[in-house]
Design a protein around this nucleic acid. Sequence first.
DNA 1: TATGAATGAGCCTTCATTCAT
DNA 2: TATGAATGAAGGCTCATTCAT
Lengths: 202, 202, 202, 202
Amino acid sequence: MSTSVGRWREYEGSDLPVPLVAALEAFVEQGYHGTSVRDIAGRAGLSVPGLYHHYPSKQAMLVGLMDVAMDELISRSRDAEAEAGPSARARFDSVVESLLLFHMYRRDQAFIGSTEIRSLEQANREVYVGRRDEQQRMLDAIVVAGIESGEFDADHPADASRAVTTMCVGVAGWYRPGGPLDPSELAQVYLSIARRIVGGAR
Amino acid sequence: MSTSVGRWREYEGSDLPVPLVAALEAFVEQGYHGTSVRDIAGRAGLSVPGLYHHYPSKQAMLVGLMDVAMDELISRSRDAEAEAGPSARARFDSVVESLLLFHMYRRDQAFIGSTEIRSLEQANREVYVGRRDEQQRMLDAIVVAGIESGEFDADHPADASRAVTTMCVGVAGWYRPGGPLDPSELAQVYLSIARRIVGGAR
Amino acid sequence: MSTSVGRWREYEGSDLPVPLVAALEAFVEQGYHGTSVRDIAGRAGLSVPGLYHHYPSKQAMLVGLMDVAMDELISRSRDAEAEAGPSARARFDSVVESLLLFHMYRRDQAFIGSTEIRSLEQANREVYVGRRDEQQRMLDAIVVAGIESGEFDADHPADASRAVTTMCVGVAGWYRPGGPLDPSELAQVYLSIARRIVGGAR
Amino acid sequence: MSTSVGRWREYEGSDLPVPLVAALEAFVEQGYHGTSVRDIAGRAGLSVPGLYHHYPSKQAMLVGLMDVAMDELISRSRDAEAEAGPSARARFDSVVESLLLFHMYRRDQAFIGSTEIRSLEQANREVYVGRRDEQQRMLDAIVVAGIESGEFDADHPADASRAVTTMCVGVAGWYRPGGPLDPSELAQVYLSIARRIVGGAR
DNA sequence: TATGAATGAGCCTTCATTCAT
DNA sequence: TATGAATGAAGGCTCATTCAT
């Protein structure tokens, strides 16, 4: 998934293949180990071997799901940062907004991406965690830069950065479309909280 | 689990029965559905029927684990609030500190308490979620009180309160004993972040 | 497969169709039931339906393989016998040599022909076993004739004949090209053993 | 299985556990890969998990079967050789008779032991083939000793020894109890053939 | 002719749970 | 109290085979 700079705020329905949509739904409801391949196949309108024609294993579906989500998350947050220009505050606002939007518009994928890491097999997990940590370091660097430039005044930059990420990821755990605020409004609410966490002049 | 007022900061090893300790370890590593009863029995040094002698089902072990944890969390945070006196800021600090300490000292139980809710059977889940929401409402009320009294200045009290809780719960996802800061030091770091979220004079 | 009289000693590469070569390899390595149609198709460089275009079923491939082998075995041993003239000893030598050569030059086919009989479906098995028994009777008759004529002195003609056949068939179980003796030399070694089994003057 | 010297000729019903008897029957009829665990369980009068309570895998049943058979074969042939005293001819007669009796009285186990080697997993196969080769070397050594002593006059000792073994093993492929000759009579017939193969004075 | 996609049936294995002892 | 033995149901996955294209 790649978005042009400026398009990181725009979301359409995910173009996930039908079997992955089915797997995603099932994993969200029941967890990876609580979901049977038969269940996924049923939701996808396929027979079990029909499903295996597209994915060689249940694990491959989880990996596919998590990879697509991580690709999109990284792509959108990079675009957001690139668009923001050099100021740490602008980059922080842009990246945090992109994280928040992603965790609302891609709620289910984001939820699985944070709760099913332990269900990845060793090798897959290592790759995934590496990418996630890289993503975290992007925000860490912005916070550190903002403190060095005097734009932020957090006492513990790494913890502040982690708290912001935790909050953004947490959104995927409770957000449901159809509430009183739409995603961009909610994003502003949580962005204002995130700004408080890193501090500095407002 | 009940603590006297004033003792909510003190933690000893959990007095969980051996089978629940075994189940807890397994659930943390592999998740509820990824863990077999045989695995739990093996970790507990029991035969499978021996385990069933103590708990009627795997689900009962999960419920037991989550109930014990929620009992302790509620008990400690009530004690913390009671000890703090009437000021919203003092109550906020006390309760948030108690949440943070609990999520470090009872990391595994807290982790399971937040990640395996979907593995609870319907009836058990309803009861548990009710208690969790009640716990959340305790912090919500403090935040609202602080805003009304002018102690806090958060624009969106409910979201601020949820952000604080999310951050505290998130601690259980990454905290490991043996880091550079001990739990009480780390609690101060995150408490300072929580204070920023609700704002107001410092 | 048909050979002119006098050519029963001459072997070229088997002209087995590609899919049967693939099936043969796989059956030798893994057995009939241990081999999947996908495996055969892969070895043959065909898609699965492409393979089914040539053979209607896996069973048909086994039958094809065993029929070709039995055709060739019978054809060659008949030619060998015909060439030998009337003497029982000459016919014995000729037929046994042809058996030995066949089990070396057509080692894999001979191996499958003796180990996968139970994998033939009832009707196919009956036909195949009938042909194999007919082949055995050919050697039996020579041994009996040799005893009646005084050329052989085996005490138990049927058992001697079976022992000779068993030994020849057994060759397909261990012979590998590239050893110190070439097939015609090895055939002489085993022919000398066969002669001892039926006995008589040397 | 261990037999005292002198008892290597005596056979009682094999004391194979019920599940192994069931597996043996099924493997003989259908081959290892052609046999399902359900089939074995059914023959054994057990449910499938009941069967797994006793054996951890289908492969373990095959290994169990082949190990028991090889243990008994080695034990009996060693006893037979020990009993025979120093003469090569006496040792040959004794060992070959023990091989023949074993392949009749333990026909099915011997049959599986020679036809399902390729169904053993790598590691199991290596161990098994090592033991089988060791067993073959026992007969090889006797034949060589007999040639050196002048008791035998085979031209190709290794081939003669292999031919004898092949013949003995082959017996398991066709022998059925209830024929005109009982095992000890049949053993004498085949022993006389084996003697011809190694030759020497009679 | 060739193949991507599909499937009913079945594979080996493990599940949570029970019960006689 | 504890456990060896057992089981119905289900697990992930593969089988031989088919068919629309």
